[in-house]
Nucleic acid binder design. Sequence first.
DNA 1: AAAAGTTGTGAAAACGATTTCACAAAGAGC
DNA 2: GCTCTTTGTGAAATCGTTTTCACAACTTTT
Lengths: 340, 340
Amino acid sequence: MDIEDGSAKLIDVARLANCSPATVSRVLNGNPNVNEIVRDRVVRAARELGYVPNGSARALRSTRTRLVGAIIPTLDHAIYATMVDALQARLSEKDVSLIINTSGYDIDLEYEQARLLVERGVESVVLVGSTHLPATLAMLEQKRIDYVYTYTSKAMESGAAVGFDNEKAGRTAARYLLDLGHAQFGMIAGITQDNDRAAGRRDGFLNELERSGIDRATVTVVEGAYRLDDGRRCMQRLMEEGTRPTAVFCGSDILAAGAIKYCHAAGIAVPGEVSIVGFDNLEIAELTSPELTTLEVPARDMGRIAADYILASPSQRLHLRQRELAIRLIVRESTAPVGR
Amino acid sequence: MDIEDGSAKLIDVARLANCSPATVSRVLNGNPNVNEIVRDRVVRAARELGYVPNGSARALRSTRTRLVGAIIPTLDHAIYATMVDALQARLSEKDVSLIINTSGYDIDLEYEQARLLVERGVESVVLVGSTHLPATLAMLEQKRIDYVYTYTSKAMESGAAVGFDNEKAGRTAARYLLDLGHAQFGMIAGITQDNDRAAGRRDGFLNELERSGIDRATVTVVEGAYRLDDGRRCMQRLMEEGTRPTAVFCGSDILAAGAIKYCHAAGIAVPGEVSIVGFDNLEIAELTSPELTTLEVPARDMGRIAADYILASPSQRLHLRQRELAIRLIVRESTAPVGR
DNA sequence: AAAAGTTGTGAAAACGATTTCACAAAGAGC
DNA sequence: GCTCTTTGTGAAATCGTTTTCACAACTTTT
């Protein structure tokens, strides 16, 4: 019976299988140079004892933890939760475990969490965006832990990146609205402090408008947290202050959904009086009325591809260091030609 | 400078601080019996070398990993992502790291993941629901790893539970709809196989109806995965087969949102012709038109309280072993008295 | 002033695996 | 039949901490 008191150790398996600990280790690690008969005895003994290796001992001796860390802003936003879901799923296929930490968009907290991850011996770290404390990256580099940026495709000296170009995405939104004939714009951006993605989208949007002769000063930009009521509040400000925009680009579907709700409550027709474009293409984009036109962020792909990079051998990695994924515009019902 | 090649080890700190490794260890672990002057030298030396302890070695010797595992069905559903977010936030306040695994509602896969977690040396495991392979629980018990059930409050011999009574929640939905005068019911349940929560809600709903004289045979129950289009599809079946229900209870807000979308497309008035009740009170419940009446699941509280249990000392735990949280009915616009 | 605690410290063992090295036995090449 | 690999195995060292034990130097009690 395996009602052992202290859990069985490798040496117990060795004893039962009548061989040395070294041999047991070899069997457990798939070393081919073990006689089949012995191998079988070991496997049987391990099963009988309900043996589970001690990961700490293994990690200590072999210097391989098969542990990966991820530091994301929050899991409360589907765009990150989905990425992590895909990341974890892929990693666990190869028996790599994922430690996850949320920073709440705070890069100082992120540093502390990175430190803890280093202490735990993670072999790679997945980060979101490219805004980080220099100390964070320095620490990772000093400990030879490689890291992957996600949600950004910005080039960098070290580390890998799998994501998309936020600036280009912002330009795409602008281009689309310009092509619909709009000339009066507003934007509800995410909080841009310490957030390169939110800032990139805003800048891309404004740059493209400017390139088409729209005076930057005429486009009001307000910032809100990624919450429904912030979207509502921000939309109210946009519609009540100065000249009303006929097209509004939101840095997130959540903000856009809030904006639509505000319009609904205030009796402003969408897209009749104002067109609204979101960002992310979350499930909620299909639930608003009208359904939301938005830019699709490949969250699941990012997670999977980041995992592939992490699992790749050093030589394979060279090809994978930078991966820009496409952003697709999903046209639904919340946008229309101006003054239709 | 700390451009050390191999990372500094505890013994290097000891050398630099001119003391023994034992003393360094004492300082690092806050042992009070260390002279202040020496303590200071150690702290300074550690900082200078950029010393980060080796968690594996520490764990191996001390038999404490400060690691917790969670196995949840998916992160792609806000109800779980939010719980994990709260769980992680609370754990990390105490420098406890969380390894997360998704099982995709597959209890065999869950077993494999539990095994890996045991190997990693997690000190506690957070599970969802009460349906698990006996082998999974046996393994955890044998290794003296305590576990916490979430999303359920069912009593069990061992382990703790923080959650709510799904059966009672189902009865609450039934009661509410009965009180509105409805007499013809339908239900869109989640997949009930290996899912005690989905089954519990369904059973509670049916039991309460029966108690009020509704023949079980007259209420059609269809099952769908927690996806918008399954909600749509299920609602269609409900409305096209046999006698139409005037009230439908959905096992999840996602299913309910899909159901509402179907009605919208099919020209069925909600709540005019059919009342719809959801479950979870996700953010999307405010986005449907009409807004969704639903039962609020305290996802965030569950995560936080589960963490509190895990962080509690064995003596404190006794009081915390079973915690039933309240389920609130949130009345919005998708329900109305029958034949209003 | 002797006995009985405190404090502060270091030497060495221990945690449970993997890895290196050595070596025997068996098969291959001449 | 004799060397040269190849194959299979075990003894012992090792990974980087924490912990136990011993002990010296002071305090406090009696």
